[in-house]
Design a binder for these strands. Structure first.
Lengths: 146, 146
DNA sequence: CTTGCTGCAAATTCTTTGCACTCAC
DNA sequence: GTGAGTGCAAAGAATTTGCAGCAAG
């Protein structure tokens, strides 16, 4: 089942409707394989949709979250939205300098998360997991510059 | 050297001044051994300070950050400020249900961070590290409730 | 037709900024 | 005294909300 079919079905089950706007936002999320800002989603979706308001994008993303289609990453006060379920489970590496977000397999972090569960009885939600730091490119630039 | 002495010294070095307000905010941060919101800091500091404005708290926290006295944790769009340097280096476990923040030694996460450096050439900033999930208390409540 | 959804504009929330006055040094 | 720091009020930025008209089913 395609993502759109799945979404239509889920909407129906909840007595909700498919609209041009929702379709456009969904398509925009599909086209983005990395986490994107509301602004970006709005711009991309607006191309497919003769009329579209930012508030509609917020409302739609909210809906997507409820249905588990989209997850939010908050980094430095900015919300990034990401389409989930397309790729394998992963965590994020956010470069606090250039803002790029890299994905690495969740499996790498799993031992640590299991450790947290065992030692601290804390169950980490892996969809919300982001590590901030400096990527290779920016680190090289830094050492060159000063 | 006490934290306040250190702060006074650092201020002096930069040609800056110690004020009632800064003292009150510093004291409020001291009193909080867990990450707190600006609002909380403001309330606590205001008790020690006949006049205090929220904007001053923001400005002071900004200063503290520059001096490395305070670090910021952003969780679910809300900024939490935490006094650093008092305890050993640590990472945060944020319960997304009750909002409590737990600290665990950085050492537990170090192997993973080293792995990221080795495999992805990405240097994680451990002061910004927060894992969201569900704490034991809330999990038990959930399973009881249904 | 029914009522969920939308655009619009206004409201909220969190944070920052400009400015004249004040106070630490 | 001097200029860094403050309170105040207003500006910004990001997000939410109320409402009347529109459109999906």
């Amino acid at each position: 089942m395609s993502c759109e079919e799945l979404f239509r079905k889920t909407l129906k089950q909840h007595g909700l409707r498919m609209t041009h706007q929702r379709e456009a936002v969904l398509k925009a999320m599909h086209a983005s394989h990395e986490p994107v800002t509301v602004e970006t989603i709005y711009e991309r979706a607006a191309r497919d949709c003769n009329v579209l308001d930012l508030s509609t994008v917020y409302r739609t993303l909210d809906l997507f979250q409820q249905f588990g289609l989209v997850s939010v990453v908050n980094a430095q006060g900015i919300n990034y939205y990401e389409h989930v379920g397309l790729d394998e489970p992963h965590v994020h590496l956010l470069c606090s300098q250039c803002g790029k977000i890299f994905s690495v397999p969740l499996a790498e972090a799993q031992p640590l998360l299991d450790g947290f569960a065992a030692r601290h009885h804390f169950t980490v939600d892996p969809t919300e997991l982001t590590f901030q730091g400096i990527c290779q490119g920016c680190r090289e630039k830094d050492s060159t510059a000063g």
